[in-house]
């Protein structure tokens, strides 16, 4: 074997440019696919539906009607990136929502009630995270426990809907900042800030990179000296906090706290995250993709109601889309694995 020194940098690995492109962008492809789907949906709705679908008012409502779901999806993205799952968030949203409404109804000032909602959500997230990390409970089971716990607590707080009349909370939804036909409310701003903050944390902090590392290979992450345990627990706490924040947004949006809110919403959040290109096996995906996923979700919902069709069609379409996306993702992952 001629292993005499070859100091020249080898060129045989300079693949054709398209392969290099795929190598760089393998992880982002599913998210681009989600963007494409969103554009097709919007264009299709504009073309085939009567009326003006792409009006600024419609598009603004698309974000605002789904602000709570977006916040849940942000928290869910953290957890799914670690290859976990959090089924509790819909119930946590209901619990914190009704808890906040109750506190406000009793005359607690908003500056106390709102942090209490966030804390309650974070505490449930912490409980799930500790169960997952230190007691090695499957995330599915641990968060299922969290789901029942939070739902039960919601009913303990109140069996009925509690109307919110506290002006600060209502302000969040009723204030409309307008620009031409576009408008946004503080709830929408909060949701978008959550996305931006999450994107920053995930991409530019060691914590964020550790979240990805855990999803890639937990053992390797530990071997690299990354703080695996702390990071994993924190991911669930973030998801819980997002549940609390979503509770606030939903309470502001609907003007009331109701213990039956958000049944099944955790599944909507998971669907949005997956449609947005995050792999359920962890380690791959983007929080901006989850934003796109929520918008896809919302668009389909809007299209269905525009058409005056049954809402059950909504679930059928989302189900089909979800399956399609999972197959596409599998194909992408399988391809990049076959390359090795």
């Amino acid at each position: 074997m001629s292993t005499t020194t070859t100091p020249e940098v080898r060129t045989r690995r300079s693949a054709p440019s398209y392969q290099g492109f795929i190598a760089r962008h393998a992880a982002t492809t599913p998210t681009y696919a989600a963007v494409l789907i969103l554009l097709v949906l919007l264009a299709g709705a504009e073309t085939f539906l009567p009326g003006n679908f792409l009006s600024p008012g419609n598009l603004s409502a698309l974000l605002l009607d789904n602000a709570y779901l977006l916040v849940l999806a942000v928290g869910m993205t953290f957890v799914i990136l670690t290859a976990g799952i959090d089924l509790s968030v819909g119930s946590v949203m209901a619990f914190t929502g009704v808890l906040g409404a109750q506190l406000l109804a009793q005359g607690t000032p908003a500056v106390v009630a709102v942090p209490a909602m966030l804390l309650a959500g974070g505490a449930i997230g912490l409980l799930i995270g500790v169960l997952v990390q230190y007691f090695h409970v499957q995330p599915f089971i641990a968060s299922l426990g969290g789901l029942f716990l939070a739902r039960g607590l919601a009913f303990v707080v109140s069996l009925q809907s509690i109307k919110v009349e506290e002006p600060t909370v209502l302000w969040l939804q009723q204030t409309r900042i307008r620009l031409d036909g576009w408008y946004i409310t503080p709830t929408g701003i909060i949701a978008l800030l959550a996305v931006a903050f999450a994107a920053l944390v995930l991409h530019l902090t060691r914590f964020g990179r550790t979240v990805y590392a855990i999803g890639g290979n937990e053992g390797s992450a530990r071997l690299m000296g990354l703080a695996v345990a702390r990071t994993k627990v924190t991911a669930y706490v973030i998801s819980g906090l997002c549940g609390g924040l979503a509770g606030l947004l939903l309470t502001a949006y609907s003007g009331a706290g109701y213990p039956r809110n958000g049944i099944g919403t955790e599944l909507d959040a998971i669907a949005a995250v997956v449609i947005g290109g995050t792999l359920l096996t962890g380690g791959r995906g983007y929080v901006l993709g989850s934003l796109v996923g929520v918008l896809v979700f919302g668009t389909i919902k809007t299209i269905i109601s525009f058409m005056g069709a049954e809402q059950s069609w909504m679930q059928i379409i989302i189900g089909g889309l979800l399956l399609l996306f999972i197959v596409v993702q599998r194909a992408i992952v399988a391809r990049s694995e076959r390359q090795r």
């Binding site: 190598a23 990049s336 390359q339």
Partner: peptide
């Protein structure tokens, strides 16, 4: 003496490169 794009995703490379 390795020519690997540091920005590329590790999993897209063959085992030898990894």
């Amino acid at each position: 003496g390795l020519d690997v794009d540091p920005a590329s995703t590790l999993g897209t490379h063959p085992v030898a490169v990894q």
